[in-house]
Structures are given as structure tokens and as C-alpha cells.
Simulated assay, not measured.
Amino acid sequence: METRAERLSPLPENVVDISVTRREWNGISVDVNATRCSGPAETPLCLESHTRLSALLEEVGSPCEPRLREGRPCPIGYVPRQLNLMPAGMPLWGYSADSRLVRDAVLTFDPKDLGERLGQPLSATELGTPRLRFSDDRLWTLMRLLAEVVDDDDPSTQLYGDGLTAALFATLGSRREERPSKRQGLAPWQLRRVLDFMESRLPGRVELSELAAMVDLSQAHFSRAFKASTGVAPYQWQLRARLERAQAMMLTTPASLEQVAEATGFADAVHFGKAFRRVHGTTPARWRRDRKG
């Protein structure tokens, strides 16, 4: 699937540059686009062969306007943090009278396949009807959080993004509310099975769909039940387990911090140090020194 930057070559008039970062979670392609302009610009936003949900993350200059047809103004007035939902087969254009920078996040997906993957049916009516310039703070925030980690290669980001997408579509496209469980958390055997599996896969990536399928729950239901049982989200549990393994290495081996970081799935000692400090409030070197004397 071509990105917007690949599709719009050569660039439209007054468009100086388009950069795209792409990542996939739960079969959903997430594109974060940054478009720089030098004056009035109207461009096709591409990806029209897929169902798309987009969020305007940042705009510098005059407001951005979604258009169903080139040259035809949007009939809906401006709203901050705007979202747009477009069914497959319907093109969408973007226009601004004087923009300098526009950042947006676009999720492309197949509703039927996504519903099966999430373990919850998605409304064909809800996702098959175009919606321009609508506002939903929860949806916008979930998309912003996805955009912030689209280029983060840390293994725990897989579970983090899976959880965000599950929450997003539970909000957007569920045909029915899941019946609340009389037992909020997972059964002991379910929790043990899931934790044993996660431990066996450390420090590698684990997908939320795998965990939910092990106990026959939708991803959204599983995430809620897991947090009720453990007090943390699945990605947080995995990150903490990696850090606990790192602590054990620092206490029982002479491994350098670079070696500890590599063994526990961090890109380097810097990334390891930042994650360690967020959780423990101190640096790995100081923590090790205080305990080894």
C-alpha cells in the first residue's frame, strides 16, 4: 500500500514536503503524515481503497479543511481536534488557504477482518458512513498516543499499540456492549496461563490478540480483565518483567549496562536507562551501586 508521500509524486502546487512514518498494530496500518506547505494547497489524501479514520494532530497556519470533492468546500464548520471517517471507495481531499505544517494520523483497515481479530463485531453502518469534522476527545487522544509511538521499536510497544487500537475501536465501532462479567478479573487459571506465556516470550514482542485468544475473550475485554487482576495493563506488566530481569542481571552478573539492555530487549543503554528511571526513580548504575556496595 503506497504512502501519501509515494502517491503524491511529483508534489502538488505549494506542497514543499511530505514525510510519512508507518507502523501496523492489529492489522491496522497507522500512518503519521507531516506536510509542509508554502501557500494555498489542495491535495488528495489518498488510501481511498481502504476504510480510514484520520485525526488532525497539529496545524500551523490557516485551518485545514476536509473535502469530499476537489474544489468543493466542506459544508461542516471548523472544529478543533477534528476526526474524519471515510469508507473504502470514497476519496477525501485536504485544503488550506495558508498552511505551513499539517500533521495527521491515518488508520486504514478492513472492518470485517478487524472485527474478527479484535473478537468483537464492528458496526457496518457506523463504519460505512462518511463522517467529516467530528469531534471525540477520547478517540483523538487514543490516536495521538498511537502517533507518538509509531516509530518506537521497543518490544513492549507492540502490546501498547494493540491495547490502544482495541480501545479505540471498542469506542468507535461496536454494535453492542459486551455484557459485563460478574467476575471483573481473569480466573486464576486464565491469569496463570497468560503470565506463563508472556514470561516464556520475554523479552520479545507479544501481540494482544494472542493473549486474548488464549482465554477466549475479545481484546478489549481481556485488557480490562487483565488490569483488574494485576493492577497494570499487559504492556506495563511486560515492561516491568523485563526490568526485573535486568535487575537480576545487574545483581548477579558483571554484565555492562549495554549488555543488560541488549539481553532485555532495549535498543541500547540509553533507552534502558530511561525506562528504568521512569519505573524506579533512579538510574540503573546508581541502583546497582547502592545494592552491590
Rank of each mutant, 00 (worst) to 15 (best):
P87L: 02
P66Y: 13
L142T: 05
P66V: 13
V60M: 13
V106A: 10
D98L: 05
E70M: 11
P111R: 02
L83M: 04
D110P: 03
S49C: 08
A55D: 00
R36I: 00
L85F: 06
R36A: 07
E42M: 09
F109V: 00
G71V: 10
L114P: 08
N26K: 03
D31H: 15
P80I: 08
R81P: 02
L56W: 00
N84I: 06
F109R: 00
L122C: 04
G39C: 03
R81G: 07
M90Q: 13
E42Q: 15
V16F: 05
E116T: 11
W140K: 03
P73M: 05
V32W: 02
L118A: 09
S123E: 03
D98I: 01
E126D: 11
V32F: 01
T129P: 09
C37W: 03
L45G: 04
G119P: 09
A41G: 01
D17L: 13
P111W: 01
L92I: 14
P40M: 10
E59F: 10
E70W: 10
E58A: 11
P121Y: 06
S62F: 09
G77I: 04
R133P: 04
A34L: 12
L118P: 12
D104P: 01
L56R: 09
P91R: 04
P130G: 07
M86H: 00
E58N: 12
S38T: 11
D98C: 05
P40W: 07
R117M: 11
P80F: 06
D98V: 00
L132S: 09
C74R: 02
P91N: 01
N33A: 13
G94C: 03
V30F: 09
